[in-house]
Simulated assay, not measured.
Amino acid sequence: MTKIGIVTASDRASAGIYEDLSGKAIIEVLGEFIASEWEYIYEVIPDTQEEIEKTLIKMCDTHQCDLVVTTGGTGPAPRDVTPEATESVCEKMMPGFGELMRSVSLKYVPTAILSRQTAGIRGKSLIVNLPGKPKSIRECLEAVFPAIPYCVDLIGGSYIEGNAEKIQVFRPKSS
């Protein structure tokens, strides 16, 4: 069974000041896109690099998640440190994910160039940073999800089957 970590980095959501709609949006979209059996581990944490790093390491190393999806902390503000935390814990960075997400988001808002989403690999886990707004989460996941199952295959993770009625997953014919 595929394990997916979902991490919301938000001081206010982690303090209970408001409901975490972004993490729930990730769960909803992945529920539409994934046809195979999967489970998720969900955490809402403060926006500190130390806490984000610790949580990413736990998701990858302890929980052995095949995919870890984060939301929040990808802008230019001083507290936005999710990309730095991701880079700090990964062996390989996958900049194409961020490039594609920014490209797609630019169709909707000119401020997409301020976004710093990225992705990386830690062991057998793919970590993908998403923006913080539910609408943007859907747009970005629609763009990058077709490549996620094959990437997870290549790093030795679980087989993720896409729901062909909702999204077309790409795997080369030889896979």
Rank of each mutant, 00 (worst) to 15 (best):
C90A: 08
I52F: 04
E28I: 09
G98F: 05
M93N: 15
S103R: 11
Y40P: 06
C90L: 07
G75D: 08
V29A: 04
E37T: 02
T55F: 00
C90T: 03
V29K: 05
G73K: 01
E28K: 12
M93G: 14
V69M: 07
G23Q: 02
D61M: 02
L30F: 02
F33W: 00
E84N: 13
G72R: 06
S14Y: 01
I26W: 00
P76H: 06
I26C: 00
T86D: 07
S22E: 01
I57W: 02
S14E: 02
I27H: 11
T71P: 02
V68S: 07
A85E: 09
I57L: 03
S103C: 14
C65K: 09
D61Q: 08
L21M: 14
E39W: 14
D20H: 06
T86W: 06
T48K: 06
H63M: 12
R102I: 06
L30W: 05
Y18D: 09
K54S: 08
G98S: 08
E43P: 15
I17N: 13
T48G: 02
P76D: 05
S22I: 06
P95S: 15
S22C: 08
R79H: 03
A35T: 01
V89R: 09
V81R: 00
S14P: 00
E37W: 06
Q64M: 08
E43H: 12
M93W: 12
P46T: 07
T71A: 07
W38Y: 07
V89F: 12
E39S: 15
G16T: 08
I26Q: 02
G75T: 09
K54G: 05
E28Q: 14
T62M: 11
E32R: 11
Y40R: 10
L100S: 13
H63K: 12
K58Y: 07
C65Y: 09
M101Q: 06
T74C: 02
E50W: 04
S14Q: 01
R102H: 12
I17S: 10
T86Q: 07
S22L: 03
S14I: 04
C60R: 01
A77P: 08
T70C: 05
D47T: 07
E91R: 14
E28H: 13
T71S: 08
G72H: 07
I17Y: 11
D66T: 01
G73N: 01
L30H: 00
G96N: 08
E87H: 15
L30S: 01
D47Q: 08
W38A: 01
G72K: 04
V44F: 05
F33G: 02
M94N: 10
D61A: 02
G31R: 04
T55M: 03
T82P: 04
E43L: 12
V81Y: 03
D80T: 10
E19I: 15
I26A: 01
Q64K: 10
L67H: 06
Q64F: 07
T55Y: 00
G75L: 10
H63T: 13
L100I: 14
I57P: 01
K92D: 11
E91H: 15
L21A: 12
S88A: 13
G23A: 06
V29N: 02
